[in-house]
Design a protein around this nucleic acid. Sequence first.
DNA 1: CGAAATTTTGAGTTCACTCAAGGATGGTGG
DNA 2: CCACCATCCTTGAGTGAACTCAAAATTTCG
Lengths: 251, 251
Amino acid sequence: MTRGYGRFNLLPDEERQAFFGAMRPAQVLQSGEDLAMEGDRATGCTIVLDGVLCRYKLLSEGKRQILGFPIAGDLIGPAGLMLGRMDHSVRALTPATVATIPRHTFLDLVATQPHIAQAIWREVLVDASIAHEWLANVGQRPAYHRIAHLICEMRVRFEAAGIATGPRFAWPITQGHMAEATGLSSVHVNRVLQQLRADRLITLALGVLTIHDWAALQRVGDFTPDYLFLNSRAGDAQATGAVCELTRWSL
Amino acid sequence: MTRGYGRFNLLPDEERQAFFGAMRPAQVLQSGEDLAMEGDRATGCTIVLDGVLCRYKLLSEGKRQILGFPIAGDLIGPAGLMLGRMDHSVRALTPATVATIPRHTFLDLVATQPHIAQAIWREVLVDASIAHEWLANVGQRPAYHRIAHLICEMRVRFEAAGIATGPRFAWPITQGHMAEATGLSSVHVNRVLQQLRADRLITLALGVLTIHDWAALQRVGDFTPDYLFLNSRAGDAQATGAVCELTRWSL
DNA sequence: CGAAATTTTGAGTTCACTCAAGGATGGTGG
DNA sequence: CCACCATCCTTGAGTGAACTCAAAATTTCG
């Protein structure tokens, strides 16, 4: 069973098959491997089947800003395809499985299959909405609340993708990554996590995150899931598509 | 003469007329007036004809994060239309002129006019790219560099929109707005601006910004305009469309 | 001209950072 | 199976960038 094609499983049969049929064979990325680099001419649109990746930008002085953590069902590169080049890089944080639709096939699908086009634009727009929320998070919230917000988001997205069920799940994001995502230093992230633990909100150890008080964590993180636009029918995480080898990273 | 429809002037004649013809009569916003609120069901897609607006999110504790400064040629609300509700609010910072295409007409245009659809998606994707750059700016750069970056971006966008020519132009963004855009306090913005002035990079007074050393300012701001995706044909700022009353806010 | 908004200044504080070192953990190969 | 290495996590101490509060000066607008 494959982790999920996210919303793309909800497409009408014909278009769903067209979409899945357009994908090249699934491809496995090693942890730390780059899938695309900022400035690259995008050669295709990639859908994440399994694993956790990060979008990022490199700045002068070696700083890095993580822009998001794509997981199963998320798309990599549609914007790059349509604007001509990638505005950010993408790297696997865990072993990951992805499948790519070549540039031409993808543009054809978007032009001729309205439901596919709609599903893709939805993903793109939700990504933009998430970027807005992250900007607000990094710009306005103190470290403690900022980290809580990130954890809330990932929990909800993991559940929506069918990766996590319940308050205990694999957390493949290092404190260094959390620092780069939130604009904090990794030392400070570590201290904030200890505080969240002392406050009985979460524990995070050995790659496993446990949420002890979901309501309080959301309150602290000032989190409401509206910006994720998950409000369509439930059940879109049950995958029915093509079988592929899965890398193991989750619990 | 109208300030500009941005890239929409580049559409083939037939589609350009369809696009302009779909707009309701231009509408004037007062400074400080809200055009849309987060959570609103979007009723149309609005194109900015003149003036400067801001997209923003309100957070708990009364904090506000500004997500961008739409100017002539920019679109408000296409994402809101397609996702069902706005993920952020939009407010005029200066008197502004805008024109709206009603929901149904807009969706029809997108579905039936490929060049219009392409132009709109381009705008949407560039907005997302800008949000990514802002996230990196706010997350990683110190205040001094962060403000420099914002000034560089606005200068380039003002020029591309035909609003500014040369290094001296109207700057309707208060220090309070700059603070909310960059995640700094307005007091600190003020001190950074004084430092930029002491360093002979800019002067900003009475709503007029002068850039004294563009090369140095870009260096300080770690600014390259790639993420704005302005690389298509020049001359798209010459407006030829319908005439409308213009509010005066620029030099 | 007066009221409101914005900018500026000063003083004191704090949140988050840097630097540095020591402990865990996990993967790899002998 | 264990030794080793790389990565990641943790802790301590000192520093600094940016913040808050408060009030005065300036500009804008009705």
